[in-house]
């Protein structure tokens, strides 16, 4: 579904060129759960951002369902993000002045869905992530785990084909992190592709494949032997 070939990313830091990615080749198949691992500064988040069209590469080729995306306009990329991708961030990134329901409704609003329908769908998604009793709560009134559930509901709003998760449990206690991971695993089972950045080996065990990145390069890709967690 997603094919990266020779992707590079170079930052200009005050005249000094810093290479974040150096010729990354990567494929993400439909319905696949891919974990990207690597030490801090290895380029894993940069890779995720390029995959999610949140950032553009300096070179190489990116194809989404065999169509190159590099030449697309800002508007077209925004449309792809809205219709095909969902994002879950370590810091949740909920709009603080909007309620849980309104946060989930945001991608639906951007898609132009009528108010009544979007309200209903957002409500259903919050029920799905176990927050039916927190629909009108603002982010500041929710725990970290609840906020991340809202973020997951928001990511699912437009029925994405891929969910990009950047350290989704990084700011959560272990138990809550497990709950979030269970939700992602369920989504994967329902056929949603998941690309998750983590440096936690235990979390990566849930994935189908682990891609290891170091110094801006993919140093290995290994299929995960399914353990008991995966059967959960």
């Amino acid at each position: 579904m997603i094919t990266l070939q020779g992707i590079t990313k170079v930052y200009d830091a005050g005249g000094e060129k810093i290479s974040a990615l150096e010729g990354v080749d990567l494929n993400v198949a439909k319905g696949e759960f891919v974990a990207i691992m690597g030490p801090s500064g290895s380029g894993k988040s940069t890779l995720l951002h390029i995959l999610g069209l949140l950032d553009s590469s300096s070179g190489g080729e990116y194809k989404l369902e065999d169509r190159p995306v590099q030449g697309l306009s800002d508007k077209d990329k925004a449309h792809l993000r809205n219709q095909h991708f969902g994002f879950i961030f370590q810091s949740f990134y909920l709009l603080p002045e909007y309620s849980a329901l309104e946060n989930v409704m945001l991608p639906l609003s951007l898609a132009g869905m009528p108010v009544k329908e979007r309200r209903q769908k957002a409500g259903e998604l919050l029920v799905k992530v176990g927050l039916s009793h927190r629909v009108n709560f603002y982010p500041s009134m929710l725990s970290g785990g609840q906020q991340q559930r809202v973020a997951i509901a928001r990511a699912l709003a437009n029925d994405p084909t891929v969910i990009f998760a950047d350290e989704p449990t990084g700011n959560l206690p272990l138990a809550m992190g497990e709950e979030i991971l269970d939700i992602l695993t369920d989504l994967h089972k329902q056929g949603v592709s998941i690309v998750m950045v983590t440096h936690d080996e235990r979390l990566a065990e849930r994935a189908d494949r682990v891609v290891r990145v170091q110094d801006g390069k993919v140093i290995s890709q290994e299929l995960v032997t399914k353990g008991p967690h995966h059967a959960k």
Binding site: G52, L54, D74, K75, A78, H79, R81, N82, Q83, F87, Y93, L94, L95, L106, P107, L110, A111, R154, N158
Partner: peptide, 16 residues
């Protein structure tokens, strides 16, 4: 800025 970044990630283009 962050809110705008969030909205852009959700699919808001520059015009929006």
């Amino acid at each position: 800025q962050t809110a705008m970044g969030i909205m852009a990630a959700m699919g808001a283009d520059r015009q929006t």
